[in-house]
């Protein structure tokens, strides 16, 4: 897709996110909206996949380590045709394949179940290791939150990916600077993020996470890099695209009511 088309696609995905959360009555809009542009570029321009054959062995893999941002993943999958768009409105309802946090046993297109923070990067590293053993050119992408970097397991995984020089692995940090209880630096400072990844042997790329040109360039650089995993540290705005949600931690895990859903959708027209 050209950048103009990606922008349109991202807008649709933001609308999907608001609609599904409005219908669900609970869920996490903030981090889904901050990651939308990163996810749109990845799913519509980068990942090699076959939505009609979700288990196609040659597919690139995506792991949503920050599993609470399931809405943005579900919207991407639905927009690509993994399942019908109408199904998005079943989010978090009994019997739905769209669980509150992604469940691979319920939905094709989800590689592994996540939701407990800090676990996804290890799984992504394991897949990258397996792909190397198979001498396959499969690439692995993992989206983590910045608050999530407080989990110790993230750094265990980062250490091992650097150790095994997994250049087929790309970790995207959605650096929206907020977590449930406030600013990252006030709750528990994880900065400097770049230096930490560097110290573990990663290539790091810092970008504006809502600038498609920078996003696409970063993915291209990651794909070309040899002998090192890549961390893309993307500065984003939590709740991006909805004025009353932007940069407000209270929209981490709260769904908009009917009125605010309508207002948000109007802004996203």
């Amino acid at each position: 897709m050209e950048i103009a088309q990606l922008k349109d696609q991202a807008k649709k995905i933001r609308q999907d996110i608001i609609k599904m959360l409005g219908a669900a009555g609970s869920g996490h809009p903030g981090g889904s909206l901050s990651a939308t542009d990163l996810m749109t570029a990845l799913f519509f321009n980068i990942l090699r996949q076959q939505p009609q054959a979700p288990r196609w062995p040659g597919r690139d893999r995506f792991i949503l380590s920050k599993g609470h941002c399931a809405p943005v993943l579900y919207a991407c999958l639905a927009e690509l045709g993994y399942f019908p768009l109408e199904q998005l409105l079943t989010l978090r309802k009994l019997g739905s394949c769209l669980q509150g946090h992604p469940s691979c046993q319920d939905l094709a297109g989800v590689e592994v179940s996540t939701g407990s923070l800090g676990m996804g990067l290890s799984v992504a590293t394991g897949i990258a290791l397996g792909a190397k053993l198979d001498q396959s050119d499969v690439r692995v992408y993992c989206l983590v939150g910045d608050g999530e970097l407080q989990e110790g397991q993230i750094w265990e995984a980062a250490m091992s990916a650097g150790h095994y020089r997994l250049d087929n692995l790309c970790c995207i940090v959605d650096n929206n600077d907020l977590q449930i209880d406030g600013r990252i630096k006030d709750v528990m400072n994880v900065y400097p993020i770049v230096d930490k990844f560097k110290a573990f042997g990663w290539q790091t790329i810092e970008i504006e996470g809502h600038d498609f040109k920078q996003i696409l360039e970063a993915y291209a650089t990651a794909a070309k890099t040899k002998e090192k995993p890549t961390a893309i540290i993307a500065r984003t705005v939590k709740g991006k695209g909805v004025s009353f949600m932007e940069d407000r931690e209270e929209w981490h895990g709260k769904a908009p009511n009917k009125e605010l859903t309508a207002q948000a959708l109007k802004e996203l027209e």
Binding site: S122, V123, A124, T125, G126, I127, L129, A157, S160
Partner: peptide, 8 residues
């Protein structure tokens, strides 16, 4: 976690 990834 790595074992999980390898199994995939």
């Amino acid at each position: 976690g790595l074992a999980a990834g390898l199994s995939l």
